[in-house]
Amino acid sequence: MTKGAVLILGGRSDIGLAIAHAFAAEGHPIWLAARGVETLAENRADLALRYGVEVSLVEFDALDTGGHGAFLDGLPALPEVAVCAVGLLGEQAQDEKTPAQAIRVMRTNFEGPAAILAELANRFEARGSGAIVGISSVAGERGRATNYIYGAAKAGFTAYLSGLRNRLARAGVQVLTVLPGFVATRMTAELDLPAKLTAQPDEVGRAVVRAVKTKRNVIYVKPIWQLVMAVIRAIPEPIFMRMKL
């Protein structure tokens, strides 16, 4: 029996690729969608050789929201699982002084992902099946001075996913929110991350596959993050506002 295809939006990202590996290892065909997707030819060969699955590359620009419908119409079929791993961390210190850059961070982390998932949600709802996976962030749980532009966009995305889940629950469509915490990726290569709190991309990949199989709603990849964020959310604002985080 052939397994359903998995569409990875943001197929160049380390987390997106790791999720692709984890689904391919289970025998799912993979469609990698990214800008300048032809440069992922090596990744396509690697996935196909390692797991013996079909891998396709599809050109996709998350910010070209007007083209999203045509993008989905151009796919060979509607995928079984759609993963949105599109994201841009930005440089908070510069972005807060440069509105155009801040807007780019907000559009990449919220507007683009929300727009493409809207199209997918409508089609999955009509079909009555499918899984939508959104890679959001613990940064969206409380705004901090050091990354609130990124965090605000992720907060929006988290709320959006929660709303989609509520709407699609009756349609038989799963919506999974992934809050990975720190992950050792290209995005965080310049940051000094604490090892105990940092997941490897392949851990995220396996956790996502497991969560899709078991129909979970929200996951933190490393359980410790649930506790960390509970504490961070519980700090009273008068204290939080003076903290350096």
């Binding site: 090596e42 990744n43 060969a45 690697d46 050789l49 390692r50």
Partner: peptide, 8 residues
């Protein structure tokens, strides 16, 4: 960072 199989 260079860990892909390319052809067989």
């Amino acid at each position: 960072g260079f860990n892909r199989m390319l052809a067989f």
